[in-house]
Write a protein that binds this DNA or RNA. Structure first.
Lengths: 208, 208, 208, 208
DNA sequence: CATGAATGAGGTTTCATTCAT
DNA sequence: GATGAATGAAACCTCATTCAT
């Protein structure tokens, strides 16, 4: 049962504060070490560099969310059945929310203070994934409506819309995480957002 | 008719490029001056400091949008009549869009590269304004539905929703600006987004 | 008539001492600046980096020697007539010697303390040039001895010998420069070395 | 029969690579330890410090050469009979060459990568010894030529020449070691160099 | 024998800014 | 208007070495 060294823990705690306060770029290792009462050398024993220190605060939580999302999409649910009101989808959302709040500090760091750390793209990656999903859905729907068998693609407007909706979905989680301090609050807020999101989606996609 | 000095213009041009490429914080004044073929001293004659140089690129455009928005809200349109499909509202949107594209570079700078410049809060400010607007609307609607004359307020959920919707509205402009290079494209994309936004709003706000 | 700034000169003077004493790698910029009574920032105003500071001490002298040598080889003297006792060859040697002593400090730096500076290869470059020359000479001699017209090349042993002799010739200058403090002394020593060099050459190259 | 520990051997092997690649100064103990899969503490158990680690790679081979050379000079061969074509001299050369190639890696390290290690002077030491030898020879020859019994010394030029020749002799070994990968090759190249060396010597020393 | 955490000084470099001219 | 030398703090990072366990 490997206990993390006291020094390392102190470093992580102080680093979290410093990064949160100033953002990755403006945070200073010198400062972090001083506040932690640790020499720079000690810091460099535990962490490869500044980015690694930051990474140590967010790496694992990000991986967990990624696993949840990937598992969901890897499961062979046909596009049209994804994202609807099926219970399994709700389950995924709750898993995500749970993870977000279990490591809330880390995710706030990641989502608002990561510039320059190499982790800036995480939100974008999830957005891309959702984007891809919505594209498939829209395409499927178009296919079903087509009479003749000609190949169909997405219009520029539809592409923009998919990306927007994807962005909105991801941001709804981010929004809740940033604005609700506890998961209880989050659970109060989320249903309204979901209703809003679905309302937008159905309006724009046309009834049935 | 104040003619801007050649030096100042060169500086502004190069600064725009540099800030766009690296962001406010990582951009280097030294570098900007070198590329502009200007000495640091000269730069400091025209601009108070780094933030002022950045500000000179975005100040005016921001003010223009602000004027448009403030004028709109200062006009005594009752909340319930704002934000609907009335032509005057469309006019405001188009004015905003027009301004955004007239100074597209500046706004991209402001919206994506301002961290550390003191202008990070601009988007938030507009969001606050929209937020305030939506709160008034929702409040008004609740008042009308109340039978007894007791004072009413917003629930936590409603507050969160208002802020979310405000954020979404502001972001729809940002999204379009970032993803459509010309205003023509923007005009193609925007209607779909607006439909989506309204769909969400109506769904969540209830019939009528 | 651009006067070099006092600061820059002080920096160059101190740097020369420090590099000479400790070698490029072990010399410390902090130290150099402190000894020169100058801030590191000032140093970086004048010099791009450590290597550039070192380069500023040796660049020009190296170029001068290079010019002399290149001019000599570019002149269309047939191999067999180069390197003999012709007066023009003596002239070149004297030009080189003169340059070496005009910038003796720089060359001592270059020849004994350059490791890590990017200038380590200078001696090798000159050796390569001399090597090339000797190869041509040996080849020419072999051709003249051949009766039939078949193409001839150099044996491994001859190649090694050429390179050795080239190295010896270059080193004779280095040796003199390092061991004789003034050019007068150098002029006393050099003839003996030249005799030795020629003796070796003729012995190994065969009669006449 | 002292068995060297596995750890120590691994350390030595990796250190040799690292020193060879980067030179003593730039090589990093941390790196060496990491590559060897050994902790720094373990390294410090076997070696006093960085210099000692380097020393462990070259100490013994250097001592062997030194023994050979010292034995040769300690033997009471009169100066005039040293360095000539006597078989015993050839034997010494071969012993040296043999040792050089037996520990070729070590000697390459010593001769090209030792800067900063405290072993930089080894080559110089051997040169000094050869220098001393040549001085004695030259002095002896001058004595024999003197008619009257007055004391004689060496001229500055003669001194410089002795040192040069000593340097050349030592360097001939170094040259061969660096340029010939196997002793077989070395044996091909060396005779030509020796002819060259003797040619120079005889030319400069006068007939007979 | 070996671990591995910790030291602390030192390395080079970059930066926004100032100011006498 | 403009120059460009100079500031000085701060940045990240590396290193050989030590020592309690």
């Amino acid at each position: 049962m490997e206990r993390e060294s006291e020094t390392k823990l102190k470093l992580l705690r102080v680093a979290k504060e410093e990064f949160m306060e100033k953002g990755f770029h403006k945070a200073s290792l010198r400062n972090i070490c001083r506040k932690a009462g640790v020499t720079t050398g000690a810091m460099y024993f535990f962490f490869r560099d500044k980015a690694d220190l930051f990474g140590s605060l967010v790496r694992e939580p990000v991986a967990k969310i990624k696993t949840i999302v990937d598992d969901y999409f890897k499961g062979d649910i046909p596009p049209l059945y994804r994202g609807t009101d099926k219970p399994e989808n709700l389950v995924v959302s709750m898993k995500i929310l749970n993870t977000l709040y279990t490591y809330r500090d880390s995710f706030l760091l990641l989502l608002t203070k990561a510039e320059g750390s190499g982790y800036e793209k995480v939100k974008e990656d999830f957005t891309d994934q959702a984007d891809q999903h919505y594209r498939e859905v829209v395409l499927e729907r178009k296919k079903n409506k087509e009479v003749s068998g000609e190949t169909v693609g997405l219009s520029r407007g539809e592409e923009a819309l998919c990306r927007w909706i994807a962005r909105d979905q991801v941001d709804s989680f981010v929004y809740v995480l940033c604005n609700c301090e506890t998961m209880e609050e989050a659970r109060e807020c989320l249903p309204l957002l979901v209703t809003y999101l679905r309302g937008g989606w159905h309006t724009v996609m046309g009834g049935k």
